[in-house]
Design a protein around this nucleic acid. Structure first.
Lengths: 332, 332
DNA sequence: TTGTAGGCGTTATCAT
DNA sequence: ATGATAACGCCTACAA
């Protein structure tokens, strides 16, 4: 509750001087500086950053909004962002939306109200218009992993189609011909691209994609569970399944275990995105992994560059996926 | 960059009226309200929350500081906090310190500067004095999981000694008599309590605790790796090992795998804290788990109650741990 | 019902 | 080198 006025009074100087001392500016006599710093220390004074941002018109803060904070894919990305930000002495503030559009709107509004300097967003929205009114267009926006339709901004993502191909190719090579796909959240770019990649890859191998082999999903556990059950219920179920992300794969595994079905014994299973910790405990799930930490770092850099006023046009950086072969598939 | 002044001008009213409309106050004529709201919508105006906090002297924000955002233990806790906060329309802002004291100081300072209304802290500090100067003592502080020495504040933690007993009892019942322990970060209360519980439990079974069976750790992967190696190098290595948290257990598993040692074949391994996702992929590690989501919710409630001015004295809520028996141990 | 003006805690511009 | 003082964007008496 103390302000620099209180400090000024105690030190017998003006607020301007206190401000100068706090910000380490020159043009303040050594003795004065000493005197003020002493009081600053004694009182444990912490300047009000909100007031400061009012006059400075910047907050030295960069915000990250992710749809699922329990997904290691996103937490690793965040670490990449934090490292970059720390180098520029910027604070990072993180918000979680639980893959819920309304949550996301609230979070973004809140952050915009706080006047963060930049926003890195992995959106739960399908279209830009769903969130545009919550956004301010005068600060750098970097889209992460997903591109809502019609929202033009810098974008850092992975080559989802390529990743799908990698997975299909792998399964095909193992002899699988009926390959199921549990899709991601409907309307999300990442989900669409992965599905398209899957379809294209099948065709590339002379296989005709079948509608019944593509189950809907939501990038969450429930989707994985329901998806796998749907596929299993088919008259002619697949011998291998691709889940559109790691969390869905976990949901699928749960359901399979409940049905006493073995992976890869009864069914081969792969997915997009690695599970950092889990794969250390038990290197089991074969996945198409993205360079997560790097993605975060790149996203942060794009944001910072725009902040610095460099760069003009929209940029899109696409990362390559890598197949991490483990033990969740078998040859048929 | 627009302010309520701009809106006021466009609407042909005063700033006071605009403010009233924005905050949904009564005493503004329906037509005026309409008129202003129209402009608000058209311009996509988002009020500056920092300016607002200046006069309101509150930010409707609650901060959470955790040492490891990649640890599901903390992310689950965060979800518990978020749910409570959302109910009271409070925003949650999350900061990660990577178990580093200096990071933590910076994070806390930054949050205090932002004048968050309350702070929930899982600290990397051993003693309160290491961070006290970064703290403001006029806002509610709730300690989570760990209690820095000499820092008096509300506390939500688990019964670490009890948890250690559960694990030792379990291993003892399986016939283990040489039980190793990889400790947590030195000086952290949680680490101390778990170690003490281990020692006490051993004694309870008539076993004399041996110094060489207790390896130092850091709650991180490295600690787990080095700890397990140290224990394995003993003239008479343990037949079972307890890791002070989940992440250390993962580090230990990595090292074991590199040495081609099998769990539980060559060694039994258990730890504190569950690995939510991993345990779904492969229910392998036997653990003493805490009711994470609840812990978060309780922490948030304590903070909110204090904010509401209720409650006076310091409170400490201790949660019970539960043994989740899986397949990482064998009978000897 | 609406408007005016002062204050919230900083920084920045001028003086001195 | 230091100090007054006017912003910054909002809220809140108080007046009208």
């Amino acid at each position: 509750m103390a302000s620099i006025y209180d400090i000024a009074k105690m030190a017998g100087v003006s607020v301007a001087t206190v401000s100068r001392v706090i910000n380490g500016e020159k043009y303040v006599a050594p003795e004065t500086r000493e005197k003020v710093q002493k009081i600053l220390r004694e009182t444990g004074f912490i300047p009000n950053a909100n007031a400061k941002s009012l006059t400075k018109k910047k907050t030295n803060t960069m915000a990250v909004v992710v749809p699922d904070l329990t997904n290691p894919f996103f937490t690793e990305i965040i670490r990449g962002i934090e490292q970059q930000a720390a180098q520029r002495k910027m604070a990072v503030i993180i918000a979680n939306t639980d893959e819920d559009l309304e949550h996301e709107r609230l979070a973004i509004r809140s952050l915009m109200g706080r006047r963060v300097d930049a926003l890195i967003l992995a959106s739960a929205a399908r279209a830009g218009k769903e969130i545009r009114s919550s956004l301010r267009d005068d600060i750098p926006l970097v889209l992460l992993d997903r591109k809502p339709n019609g929202l033009e901004a810098d974008l850092v993502r992975s080559d989802d189609r390529g990743g799908a191909e990698i997975l299909v190719d792998y399964l095909f090579a193992l002899g699988h011909r009926r390959i199921g796909f549990i899709s991601g959240k409907a309307g999300i770019s990442t989900a669409k691209n992965r599905l398209e990649g899957y379809v294209a890859a099948l065709r590339g191998h002379g296989l005709e994609p079948e509608q019944e082999l593509m189950a809907p999903g939501d990038f969450q556990r429930t989707g994985g569970r329901e998806g796998i059950l749907k596929l299993l219920a088919l008259a002619q179920p697949p011998t291998a399944v691709i889940a559109a992300n790691n969390i869905e794969a976990i949901g699928a595994l749960e359901a399979l275990r409940e049905k006493k079905l073995d992976v890869p014994g009864d069914l081969s299973l792969v997915c997009f995105d690695d599970l950092e910790l889990a794969s250390q405990v038990y290197p089991f799930l074969t996945v198409a992994a993205q360079p997560v930490k790097t993605m975060g770092a790149v996203a942060a850099q794009l944001a910072l560059e725009r902040l610095a006023g460099q760069s003009s046009q929209r940029r899109e950086v696409v990362m390559r996926m890598t197949l991490l072969e483990r033990r969740s598939c078998r040859r048929v």
